[in-house]
């Protein structure tokens, strides 16, 4: 059991590792020096500048809208695919799985440039819509793979039992499948949201007039140097996440994420 103790210690160390840069972001967001290379006492200046920066806030809004739509659509399509493939026993099952994972193995810049030419040939104007489509194709495989790992565990006799009890297919879904898949659904949504929210490469090629996302804005301002305002924004986003977690309620969160399979 001493091995267990070492393993536990190591795993706790992993969580420290995950939060090291986050702590650095928060600490340096109060740094009076205009650079990350020195620390010169505390200031709230960067937070003030952040809220005065209307352009930056606009990009944050764009990113949030795109990420919410992308994650929701990817999760819905992912649920359908996962349930479908879990019950599908026909030929070509492996090829279908490979197909859905395909976008993962294409370097994003290749897909981004190619999608740009697809959209320009079909005269689809670049904007939030094309951003969602581009982000969808990179987050869909992740969402689907997460959902599939749960869906294949479902008892195949469940839907029949539900139908016997007089459930319509929709009721079967909402009353039987969804509660059972809920942890995976939440995990898939979070993963897609994160993927979309932090995407740079797809956004570079697929954003249009007035739809610059936050990572794009940050990436393009690298030439003049990142300001601590960006740290302040990062710190605020973490804070916002924690507030949401608290609002939804830690107990609720537990229930959503952990209770599974009945």
């Amino acid at each position: 059991m001493t091995v267990d103790r070492v393993v536990n210690g190591f795993a706790r160390g992993v969580f420290v590792f995950l939060y090291l840069p986050i702590v650095a972001v928060i600490v340096y967001s109060f740094n009076a020096a205009g650079t990350n290379t020195r620390f010169e006492g505390l200031t709230l200046q960067w937070y003030v500048e952040l809220f005065q920066d209307a352009a930056l806030m606009q990009t944050l809004q764009t990113s949030a809208i795109v990420a919410v739509i992308t994650a929701t659509v990817a999760t819905i399509i992912g649920i359908m695919f996962a349930l479908g493939i879990a019950r599908y026993r026909g030929r070509g099952r492996a090829s279908l799985l490979a197909l859905i994972a395909l976008p993962l193995i294409v370097p994003e810049i290749v897909l981004g440039v190619a999608l740009l030419s697809v959209f320009s040939t079909t005269r689809i104007p670049l904007g939030i819509g094309t951003l969602v489509l581009g982000h969808l194709i990179v987050s869909l495989p992740l969402a689907t793979l997460v959902l599939m790992s749960s869906a294949v565990m479902l008892d195949p006799s469940l839907p029949e039992a539900a139908t016997d009890l007089g459930c319509t297919p929709w009721q079967t879904f909402t009353r039987v499948y969804f509660p059972l898949l809920r942890p995976a659904v939440v995990a898939a949504w979070l993963l897609s949201f994160t993927t979309s929210f932090s995407n740079i490469v797809m956004s570079t090629f697929l954003s249009g007039v007035g739809s610059t996302t936050l990572p794009l804005k940050i990436y393009s301002s690298l030439k003049t140097g990142l300001t601590p305002t960006i740290n302040a924004l990062g710190a605020l986003l973490i804070l916002l996440t924690l507030v949401i977690v608290l609002l939804v309620g830690v107990t609720q969160m537990r229930r959503i994420l952990v209770e599974s399979r009945g």
Partner: peptide
């Protein structure tokens, strides 16, 4: 467990370049 999983993903909501 759910809380721990959430802890794993939260850091990735700050921008990649910022991290």
């Amino acid at each position: 467990q759910g809380f721990l999983l959430l802890l794993v993903i939260i850091p990735f909501w700050t921008d990649f370049l910022v991290r």
